[in-house]
Design a protein around this nucleic acid. Structure first.
Lengths: 251, 251
DNA sequence: TGGTCATACCGGTCAGACCACTGTACAGTA
DNA sequence: TACTGTACAGTGGTCTGACCGGTATGACCA
């Protein structure tokens, strides 16, 4: 009840991004409840991404400033028995559409970001760098589509996408063959050539999919375990993932 | 901390669907914390959909039985300023891919469900019936893709899709022109013809997109308001939505 | 004017108590 | 012996009051 009422304040615009909510003690008085109940309600709102709570300062409506986290759906996908094939199919769908739209809608700022991520990717040395750079490039590509629905859907697979990228980054042959696609993709978008963009992204992700072999129709957990073996990393995937997506809730 | 530890138990399979969690008092002892802190952690898990809490009985791991709700992302899409165009583009992307995959992977059960929803759609009389039937058909189509990632993404726009469908259902010309596509789509899938499936779904959704006119690049809120005017419904969209998706959290 | 300290307020947590609900076991009655 | 009702243990839901560490502001002093 309290959670719903407060959520309504946020959703209705009564409270705006970065606004401070009344204190727990004030809310307890206002709703005629104990502070504990208020805290539980606030916890719900935190979990829904509507607010952020800062100890000693108060609770604030989640800001529109800075990079917004995408609602990750790793859990949902895992629980539905998704395989590497399912994920790859979905990723191909998203990035193909995004590339085509980017070739139509990308603005100067988008191109600058894309080029910057390209430079960074070219300068990558370690697998961690390469995965970071790869993710940045593909995220910039999807952002250049200027379709927030598609972007959000891509964000929902971001953590799992990192696992795919770990796999690709661990195979030198894959890196060698698919590497040039990044630049070609950028050029297709810069030159407003949707068909070239489509062909390039499909070729690019097709190569990544070919690294799977017997794992392609295995569950995502199996896939992730093998990914780290490929890059010979001593750390667990969780640690690796945190290095790349610090805000990502544990999968 | 406690929330993470418990989530891990659920995700690791240590606790399975419908298993009962230890009581709050037991968890408080186990984690050396107060019951209040345990309750807040449990509230987080509830909000994440991992568990259900039943007063007087205890907390249970969310069951795998019965129809699973898709995590709706209406709020996220609205807050990112999505328009009817963005939603339509994403929907076209999802359903095109789903139709192609369905033509490759649909099984006898899928075809039976599709045909049943077709019959129901043909028998529709009121706008409510038509929207219900339309949603059922398109959901069955996406399910026939046998890709849980794509299905989940489609589910994330389900509430907003209903709003699109309300719009189409309110225009007799749109209903007349796009109606036959449903049967054609079914036949393409039955006959294992991905290209026909692709063409048909694109034509089908293209007609729906043409009902927008000036609203196409307006925010989704504007679009929804106009939708109900088209069908001359006395009820608000919220009521209409609830009649179709009873479990849908308020948008 | 800048630095330090005190105070008010913030969220985080604890302990203990009480309430309504749920389920099981046992006693009483037909 | 079988059925029904009651009591009790256990459940989650909530309240009250207290204490802790962190934050921010204002007052005072050098």
């Amino acid at each position: 009840m309290i959670a719903s009422a407060l959520a309504e304040r946020v959703l209705s615009g009564e409270l705006r991004a970065d606004d401070r909510l009344p204190s727990e003690r004030h809310l307890a008085v206002e709703f005629g409840a104990s502070r504990q109940v208020v805290r539980e309600a606030l916890r719900s709102l935190v979990e829904r991404g509507l607010i952020d709570v800062e100890p000693g300062r108060g609770a604030y409506v989640h800001g529109d400033n800075g990079p917004r986290r995408f609602p990750p759906l790793d859990l949902e996908y895992r629980r539905r028995g998704s395989t590497a094939r399912h994920l790859s199919e979905a990723r191909l769908m998203l990035e193909t559409e995004a590339a085509v739209l980017a070739a139509q809608h990308a603005e100067a700022h988008d191109l600058a970001v894309l080029e910057r991520t390209l430079d960074r990717l070219d300068a990558s040395v370690t697998p961690l760098d390469r995965v970071r750079g790869d993710l940045a490039f593909h995220s910039a590509l999807v952002a250049a589509s200027h379709n927030p629905v598609i972007e959000t859907m891509f964000g929902s697979i971001q953590g799992l996408t990192v696992e795919l990228m770990v796999r690709s980054a661990g195979d030198p042959e894959t890196v060698r063959r698919s590497g040039p696609h990044h630049r070609l993709l950028f050029e297709a978008i810069r030159d407003r050539d949707p068909e070239a963009a489509r062909r390039t992204i499909r070729a690019h992700l097709g190569i990544a999919a070919s690294t799977y072999g017997d794992d392609y129709d295995q569950s995502l957990d199996t896939t992730a375990a093998h990914a780290l073996r490929l890059i010979g990393s001593g750390a667990g995937l969780e640690t690796f993932l945190r290095a790349i997506l610090p805000d990502h809730p544990g999968a």
